[in-house]
């Protein structure tokens, strides 16, 4: 009996670039209170919102296989921005975890 203990499981969420913007706001990065970037906003009409699987509160561990661990906020934001900009891929794979 009792409630199940939530185990944070990392999942890959694929966001297809089907809008002009990605449409997420992130906070955090190395040397801040939030050492890995956390999604704080998802804007309607952006690719992230259209994908339907990213949620506010999720922490981003990797972007297209690139680890965000140890990266400061600006670096992490730059990696995500570049992943959205590049025409080499029509999608971004986010490895995210919902903190327990």
């Amino acid at each position: 009996t009792g409630s199940p203990v939530p185990v944070p499981t990392a999942t890959v969420v694929r966001v297809v670039k089907n809008a002009n913007t990605l449409g997420i706001a992130i906070e955090g990065g190395a040397n801040t209170r939030q050492p890995l970037p956390r999604i704080v906003t998802i804007q309607k009409g952006g690719s992230a919102h259209n994908c339907g699987q990213l949620k506010v509160g999720q922490v981003i561990l990797e972007v297209n296989g690139i680890s965000l661990r140890g990266r400061e906020h600006k670096d992490a934001a730059w990696i995500i921005a570049e992943a959205f900009k590049t025409k080499e891929k029509d999608h971004i794979d986010f490895l995210v975890v919902e903190p327990g």
């Binding site: 913007t21 449409g23 906070e27 955090g28 801040t32 209170r33 906003t41 600006k74 934001a77 921005a81």
Partner: peptide
């Protein structure tokens, strides 16, 4: 005196 590790809050970036 207890030493606390206080880290600054992060800025927020819209992507």
């Amino acid at each position: 005196r207890e030493k606390r590790l206080t880290l600054p809050p992060s800025e927020i970036t819209l992507l």
